[in-house]
Design a protein around this nucleic acid. Structure first.
Lengths: 131, 131
DNA sequence: GTAACTGCAAAATATTTGCATCCTT
DNA sequence: AAGGATGCAAATATTTTGCAGTTAC
């Protein structure tokens, strides 16, 4: 009774993955839509992003304000890992959200807590804006 | 030219602060609205929450999925601190978001980065649900 | 009395769904 | 050709804004 879904490689998917790969930071749906200049519909972007996340090619990050950003997993050092335990930095000036792969805080939870996913975001001014 | 705003103590504000204080976890706007049972309007809840955040009585947490939760600052050990550097735990089963005050990862950022705010959330199963 | 606060209606955003059509495989 | 993917329209949230009437101080 297993429903096997085969993902296809389409123009939209390729463009979206490329846009995310080229970006040096995570992008919101709106930023992606702007960057893609109408190559495909807004709705398609939502759907493709969902598929890319299922395929573990993209990961979804909740920014410090709750807005969702998407990042190509190749930007991180551990593309196939479920846990993205590294820190994200969100700049209050240039609005960029970047992955600080090197920085992975070690956290030990109290007994009984089982960790499945993490989202560590620090906000402030990045090294480009902090002059 | 300074505009001094004096916040007032109103019925809605008192009820909302009480609801958040009674809760053992952070609540979303929708959860608050339900708990308040029509004591005040949805819009009022948004506006009161904004005020309470300005007054540093409540803090705003982006949950792992990007949804916004509000927590009474008395739940934390450092009510007046700007930085809420402790870890939040978001349970995938019971949907509760709690503050783990004791746990504060130490993070050292690369040169040039200035830290203003943090949001560390870990998701999984809490000690109540993990049986 | 005055300025902050509230409720209601309406606008602005953001995300999801339905469905006919188009494209990969 | 079969079923996944897309575009467009429309339905659902979710959050914000305007404004007239109310209330705290």
């Amino acid at each position: 009774m297993e429903t096997k879904v085969t993902f296809r490689n389409t123009q939209a998917k390729t463009s979206i993955l490329l846009a995310l790969s080229e970006a040096k930071c995570a992008l919101s749906h709106a930023q992606l839509n702007e960057k893609l200049q109408g190559i495909c519909d807004r709705v398609t972007i939502y759907r493709v992003l969902d598929r890319l996340i299922s395929e573990k090619k993209v990961h979804r990050i909740a920014d410090i304000d709750g807005s969702i950003k998407y990042a190509s997993c190749h930007q991180c050092n551990h593309p196939k890992t479920e846990l993205h335990t590294h820190v994200h930095f969100s700049c209050q000036k240039c609005k960029m959200l970047i992955c600080l792969d090197q920085i992975e805080p070690k956290v030990v939870l109290p007994d009984g807590f089982e960790i499945k996913e993490t989202n560590f975001t620090i906000s402030g001014f990045c090294n480009q804006c902090n002059v």
